[in-house]
Amino acid sequence: MSKRIALLPGLAIICVMFLVPVGFVFQHGLFDPSFTTEHFTRFINRGAYMRIFWTTLQVSSVVALACLIIGYPIAYFIVRQPSRRRPMLIFLVLVPMWMSILSRTYAWMVVLGKEGIINQTLLWVGLIDEPLKLLFTTGAVYVSMIQIMLPILIVTCFSSMTEIDQSLMRSARIFGASPFKAFREVFLPLSLEGAITGTLIVFILSMGFFIVPALVGGRKDTMLANIISSQVSTGNWGFAAALSIVLLTATLLVMFAVRLFSSRFVHHQGETS
């Protein structure tokens, strides 16, 4: 009981600063001024908004999975290093996070641009005669978002991997498992929870992105958050609130679905199965 009291200040802050404002958002979306589903009908009936919604889900899922595929091996590599070398490696992973998202996005514009580093190099080497269109494409959105999100996934995976007792792997090997089998049967299930948490965090953050697609994306790379921001600035708060509710609900649903599905594969240390 006494331990739970320690949670109270945190809970109070979450209630006042988060739950109450979210309540206001629900109120704006559903009452205008009396109860109405008008804003939600508008969202469902307009093809453009549904398409933007699917784009948002798709971009966020691809970014989250790509981060997992790239980030998990990096975290595994770092955790297998001697412990005196790990802080330096984690430091290197974290360095890009000190730069604002805006500067990192502009940096990608310098890299991917028509007269940017990649095109200049390829032209100079003679591999291409005309600059490639790299910027203002969906690919550019993916590359920038993955680079921005990657450190978050690596750090989440890494911290859960450090808690895995390394001697478990060794005992598996002693009992005759091949290195790959030891990894697959012992390490992977134990590290899965951290990996899934990291992937979900990346997914949730990606769902709310709007600066990156607006700056490096093409005309079709609009995400839901872009529309929310433009609706807020033109004073359509009811519709903006409805879109926010859609975004929040979709994010929560995906989160629960992933948790439910993955609970079958996740193992905790000390569990017997």
Binding site: G47, A48, R51, R219, K220, T222, I227, S230, T234, N236
Partner: peptide, 14 residues
């Protein structure tokens, strides 16, 4: 006319 034309614009741009 902004609201209506903005909707049409959003459809058009996508």
């Amino acid at each position: 006319n902004l609201s209506a034309l903005k909707e049409r614009w959003e459809d058009w741009i996508l």
